[in-house]
């Protein structure tokens, strides 16, 4: 059986909030290393890969592989009843037809308990190849969100160009064009303001802004975001959480002239 206790419900609330507009029905695959989710959006352009490591829970117990088939809209309805600071416990049997959730207020004067019906979801897993990306950019997640939102007002697509002089986000729309160039920032006092660019070769790729703006809903999960880019392969946008947990989004590029 699964028993997983989170000190603060907000972690799960934020993760589900960040992905529920991209994917609807998906399995939470539980085993002794944690809770994983992999799902594509309906148009097969983006892929979500979530890993909530056992270390992010206290305690975490799951002695078998358990697939918890969830509708994220339904899960959101239940999670709305949890306060951010509530202690959240997930429980499920080995072959579950429901997921038990309890929310305990931090001063322990209220316990809410819900059982959510599960679904049988036949989900195909995709093999994601290990990639040595040509460019890895680490930046404040709020900055990335602002760039994507600003450029989406002008265009459907953004071209991300990483070179030795920095990283450029450029778009071309009906009303004109725009670009934002970022250079390396080293803020010793406030490391979360850093912009780090690791480059092995220059890259330039075009992506749909609609999806990038959607990924930015994960901004609350982490103060920084990492973009991993190589020519001709999907972009990886990664939000890291405490305990080695992460939320990753892969986005297929737009290719051609």
């Amino acid at each position: 059986m699964l028993e997983a206790r989170l000190e603060q419900a907000q972690l799960l609330k934020k993760v589900v909030d960040a992905i529920k507009d991209l994917v609807q029905d998906c399995n939470f695959d539980c085993n002794d290393s944690g809770i994983a989710l992999q799902a594509m959006d309906n148009s097969h352009v983006a892929l979500v890969s979530m890993m909530l490591k056992a270390e992010s829970f206290n305690p975490f117990r799951c002695d078998r592989n358990i697939a918890i088939g969830l509708n994220l809209v339904s899960l959101t309805k239940v999670l709305r009843a949890a306060q951010n600071e509530d202690i959240l416990t997930l429980k499920a049997e080995d072959a579950p037809d429901s997921l038990n959730l309890t929310f305990e207020s931090s001063d322990k004067d209220r316990i809410s308990e819900y059982d959510l019906k599960l679904m049988d979801i036949d989900q195909e897993h995709l093999g994601i190849p290990d990639t040595d990306y040509s460019a890895t950019i680490s930046m404040p997640s709020a900055e990335f969100k602002r760039i994507c939102t600003d450029l989406m007002a002008m265009s459907e697509s953004v071209t991300i160009e990483a070179g030795k002089d920095g990283i450029k986000f450029a778009c071309n729309g009906d009303i004109g064009n725009g670009s934002i160039t970022l250079r390396t920032v080293q803020d010793v006092e406030n490391k979360e303001n850093n912009i780090e660019i690791a480059l092995t070769e220059p890259v330039s790729l075009t992506f749909s802004l609609k999806y990038l703006v959607n990924f930015c809903k994960a901004q609350n999960l982490s103060k920084t975001v990492k973009l991993h880019i190589s020519n001709e392969v999907p972009l990886l946008v990664e939000y890291a959480m405490e305990g080695g947990s992460y939320l990753r989004f892969y986005l297929a590029p737009k290719i051609g002239d």
Binding site: M40, H44, V45, A46, L47, E124, H125, L126, G127, I128, P129, S157, T206, S208, V233, P234, Y250, L251, A252, P253, K254, I255, G256, D257
Partner: peptide, 14 residues
């Protein structure tokens, strides 16, 4: 113009 690729063109099934 540029064509949106599918993620399935890059990641293998199974």
């Amino acid at each position: 113009s540029k064509q949106q690729q599918s993620i399935l063109g890059f990641f293998s099934k199974g």
